[in-house]
Design a protein around this nucleic acid. Sequence first.
DNA 1: TAGATTTACATGTATATACATTAAATACAA
DNA 2: TTGTATTTAATGTATATACATGTAAATCTA
Lengths: 150, 150
Amino acid sequence: MVKIEEAIQQKEFKDPYNKVVVNLLYTNSFLVTSQNALFKPYGISPEQYNVLRILRGQNGVPTTVSSIQERMLNKMSNASRLIEKLKLKGFVKRSECPNDRRQVDVLITEKGLKILTELQLKVEKGNKMFVHLNIDEVNQLNDLLDKLRG
Amino acid sequence: MVKIEEAIQQKEFKDPYNKVVVNLLYTNSFLVTSQNALFKPYGISPEQYNVLRILRGQNGVPTTVSSIQERMLNKMSNASRLIEKLKLKGFVKRSECPNDRRQVDVLITEKGLKILTELQLKVEKGNKMFVHLNIDEVNQLNDLLDKLRG
DNA sequence: TAGATTTACATGTATATACATTAAATACAA
DNA sequence: TTGTATTTAATGTATATACATGTAAATCTA
């Protein structure tokens, strides 16, 4: 195990709160690097994969862009342009929402479902490999992260 | 407390390992958004602040670009260009390393030290505010993150 | 209902990230 | 020593992020 102090060669932190913020940022970067490598060969980004999962979860019910935005992991990223990218790859369809012409309905295509299935097992295995914790520790970590956000 | 399932409106996860990966990504985005807001008025990014802290920790001993790169929180970001930005703002000095002319020595300036001091208290308070955990929980979380990375 | 406000999405723009390539200096090996 | 490999930093480039602005449609309000 490499403690955060060792990983970034910092002798000590002001207090555990400041340390945990740095630890989160560092661990996230570690995770994102690993995820990028996994997704790269498929020409899709981690957040694009996440959006496809959101759409599949809808079971054929169309979803608006703003609803996708709210559920994205990175709240600041641009759902509109991300969906455009997915459309260019043929993974989603867009259509004007009939009741409200401002809104846009987004649906996952067969091709989108196919790549999701293709990727899913790899991602799930990758995640398990990445997290060097036993089941009790993972549950604990999930609880602490939920609590941390308040 | 908002559980991750509620935050991103996902009913359930394949297993706690996949859940914790999503939880980390989501919590990180939450944190980065909060940090950006704090740093914005000072015209400096969180990673730039971090590099200034690394340099201050050197106590006047110059550091090479690659050594800074290794210690950055985001391993993939570009130390060379980040240092260029800090130099333009007058927060660091760059000079050719005498023993190895490939390397570049980086030093924090008085102005850099000044903005660090100015920001530090705000950042420390911000971090404490951000992390809704008691001291035991924060220590636990630090240990779990260290262990997670293996 | 006319005009103002709000909402939904798209677009513009500056910067950051991810990753490949280049250029110069050094180390190494025949 | 001379050519090759490696290291260090800078640069090029495509995409992503962060945030502001624009545009059209819907809603509110007087």
